[in-house]
């Protein structure tokens, strides 16, 4: 525990738990989680589109919630459980394949953000209705307008998850 009086308000060495890996590094207060994940750790699936909290491209899952890494200060993430899109194929989550099979992307730049938002939804609700999928994904911007295909992809992934259980 860092004692308050020792804290000079500047950068400090903290440990980030990302996808079952621990990264100990000195983090400056003004670094966003997205910068750390993408620029410093090279996990480039976490994309920057708007850089202002308005598009969802930089979504990661933190302690079960889909959050915007561009609006999160990395220094505040000590000890939190963070999952990025790169983890999905590692753990064999069916979303990635369901997205490819359902053509739920065009240029693909926004796609990891959608996929992580959908992952957070399925973690909470493995059998979502169409309206619930819309509720979850309505804050993600896709300039290519791929929206309808996301619904198919998430429903498909939910089905595959169910299949996996049996």
């Amino acid at each position: 525990m860092v004692q308050k009086h020792q804290d000079d308000g500047g950068g400090k060495k903290i440990t980030l738990k990302i996808n079952d890996n621990e990264y100990s590094m000195v983090i400056e207060p003004h670094w966003t989680l997205r910068e750390v994940i993408h620029d410093k750790l090279g996990l480039t699936g976490t994309k920057e589109m708007c850089d202002k909290g308005a598009c969802g491209s930089c979504t990661v899952i933190m302690d079960g919630r889909p959050i915007l890494s561009c609006m999160t200060l990395a220094i505040e993430c000590e000890g939190r459980k963070i999952e990025t899109v790169e983890n999905l194929e590692v753990v064999g989550n069916p979303l990635v394949e369901a997205y490819a099979d359902n053509h739920a992307m065009q240029c693909g730049y926004c796609t990891p953000g959608f996929v992580m938002t959908a992952k957070a939804l399925l973690d909470r609700n493995p059998d979502p209705a169409v309206e619930q999928i819309k509720d979850a994904l309505e804050g993600n911007i896709c300039r290519c307008g791929t929206y309808p295909a996301h619904i198919d992809a998430v429903l498909d992934a939910a089905k595959r998850l169910e299949g996996g259980k049996k």
Binding site: A54, R65, P66, I67, L68, T72, N140
Partner: peptide
Amino acid sequence: TASPHIREM
């Protein structure tokens, strides 16, 4: 308010 992500934060 805002979007689901902003509401989660």
